[in-house]
Amino acid sequence: MNVQVLFGSIELGMIYAIMALGVFISFRTLNMPDLTVDGSFVLGAAVSAVMCTSGHPQAALGTAFLAGCIAGSCTALLHTKLKIQPLLAGILVMLGLWSVNLRVMAGKANIPLINKTTVFNLLDGTALETYATMIIPAAIIIILMLLLYYFLKTELGLVIRATGDNEQMVRALGCNTDWTILIGLAVANGLVALSGAMIAQYQSFADITMGTGMVIIGLASVIIGEVLFGIKSLMRRLIAVVLGAMLYRLVIAAAYQLGMSPNDFKLVSALIVALALSMPVIKERYQIWKKRRENHANHLGEERKNA
């Protein structure tokens, strides 16, 4: 792997890490399988592309975040007020977002941003210009991690985390879980949309299909991070998610260099997540199998002794 590819993967990894943090909030903190992600990622990219075209690349990021918040709120309301299962609520919003995203993109399936000013032009004319694609995502992900860490330790943050653990307890302690779920899913999808907005500016285009499988990539990042870097404290968990997202990109880049077709990436992602999710069961089975084998061996030994 040459340096350029390595750097490129790290940069992409940091941007996708924003999305992974969003997935972490919905799947882990709220304990809610939120599939809105595939749609809200494109929503962020679409808003970002349109606003870049009209010359507002920085404002595009904030607007994309807010748009993602609205998408997440819709999923939350479908679940809490209309009692639709979280999985289905997410799929419904994701489906609806396809049309919304096309509207945002003025009916075009693809918006190119070649030669448009983006946030990555912020350092133009300074000594750091060449490293802008590395410095800007790094700065954003560090700021977001710190903000998220602080947020999850606030009064509101604590009840959002408790909602994922035990909704009944949260209600018994005077807090409306409909509200905590709404805020949680809004922030989660806001981050996902922000990630989409950055990706669009980074790769100079937005495409209506760019969100497909995003939730699985996010989940894979979260799980890789948990397995390799641990879940001990909240800060450690957040760092693990970010590192997991970067590692995922590196693995994909390595696979690409080794000649794997990009068409197969989604299958590989699905397999990684399936494997990671089944790990506890596989471990348990292995333990049982080992125990039985030992038991059997002991039994044979006894029989031999007796004979």
Binding site: F151, K153, T154, E155, L156, G157, L158, V159, L173, G174, C175
Partner: peptide, 12 residues
């Protein structure tokens, strides 16, 4: 923090 509305103040 049961009796009040939870905001963005530090939790602990």
């Amino acid at each position: 923090s049961k009796a009040k509305t939870r905001g963005l103040a530090p939790g602990i």
